[in-house]
């Protein structure tokens, strides 16, 4: 009965494996911070808060263990008329954005990603729910991708 959704439509382009490092560090920092807060809570004799915080800490540790697989789950395809994006292991999400609907494309770099020469590409359409962000792209690839997508969006411009 259980079925995993899979859009089989050509090869997926994956993000840089270095993105694992970015997300890993973030997760570890989160784990340590919550663990520290839990310890302080226990020391101050607030066991309820301490328990909750240690739970959160444990959860983020588990998340850290899954980071490599989660990063491998990011993928995108430049199809003829739209951009297909996927992410997520437990919560899977596939999004198709027609090129003509893209209103603007952002390139973002966090401090950690910058150190590893990675960029994040964010697509904005008129719908707030679209929420397509491709992380972990090598800088020059991100810029190339943005330029070609802007060009595609321009040539297929449609109304709202």
């Amino acid at each position: 009965m259980a079925r995993r959704i899979e859009v089989t439509d050509g090869p997926w382009r994956r993000v840089s494996p270095k993105q694992v490092g970015v997300e890993m560090v973030g997760g570890i920092v989160m784990t340590l911070l919550t663990a520290l807060a839990a310890a302080v809570a226990f020391l101050l004799d607030i066991p309820m808060l301490g328990a909750v915080l240690s739970g959160v800490s444990l959860l983020s540790l588990v998340m850290v263990l899954f980071v490599p697989r989660r990063v491998r789950a990011y993928g995108y395809q430049l199809r003829d008329d739209d951009l297909l994006f996927r992410r997520g292991l437990l919560l899977q999400r596939f999004v198709s954005v027609p090129y003509g609907r893209m209103q603007l494309i952002d390139i973002n770099r966090g401090p950690l990603a910058r150190a590893l020469h990675l960029s994040e590409l964010k697509f904005v359409t008129a719908a707030a729910a679209t929420g397509v962000t491709i992380p972990g792209l090598p800088e020059e690839e991100a810029e190339r991708l943005r330029d070609s997508l802007v060009q595609l969006a321009e040539s297929r411009r449609v109304g709202l």
Binding site: V95, S96, R101, T125
Partner: peptide
């Protein structure tokens, strides 16, 4: 504007 397919 776009279409999403989701599964939890």
């Amino acid at each position: 504007q776009s279409v999403a397919l989701l599964q939890g």
